[in-house]
């Protein structure tokens, strides 16, 4: 099985490369990569779910907006997610159900604070039979 994502180094920050057999899986794996940077994903249980709708100008910026929405939910509502059902994905709109639980300092280790997904060195495209994306995160 092909890996879902990898973490890459960037001068003062960190980047992710996500893979997917289709665009839906790509978006889901990018979100998993994000939360694997923030915490240990195994420590997160599915205790709540949230329906999200994100829209943007194009597919590339939709990926940035999607991750920024998740960063916002962690920063303000302190929710950690570990599963994403991408229900509808067009070139500029996304609907998803996200599963996870509220941050519990006794249970979850926070590894780094991710503050924003950026457009810097952003790449999204076909890769062999599937999709691949690179996003740099500001931490």
């Amino acid at each position: 099985m092909k890996k879902a994502f990898e973490i890459i180094d960037h001068a003062s920050d960190v980047g992710i490369i996500a893979y997917g057999t289709d665009a839906e899986e790509l978006f889901s794996n990018a979100a998993l990569a994000l939360f694997s940077l923030i915490t240990e994903p195994e420590s997160v249980e599915e205790k709540l779910h949230l329906d999200l709708e994100v829209s943007s100008e194009d597919r590339d910026s939709l990926l940035v907006e999607w991750l920024n929405e998740l960063i916002y939910l962690f920063d303000v509502k302190h929710i950690l997610f570990n599963r994403f059902d991408i229900e509808n994905l067009t070139h500029n709109e996304l609907k998803a159900t996200c599963y996870g639980e509220g941050f519990d300092p006794m249970k979850h280790k926070i590894k780094i604070g991710v503050k924003a997904a950026t457009y810097h060195m952003l790449k999204l495209g076909k890769d062999g039979g599937g999709y691949k994306a690179q996003i740099i995160l500001d931490i």
Partner: peptide, 9 residues
């Protein structure tokens, strides 16, 4: 200076 987003830091 070091590598930043678009603009260098």
């Amino acid at each position: 200076i070091h590598w930043g987003y678009g603009f260098p830091i």
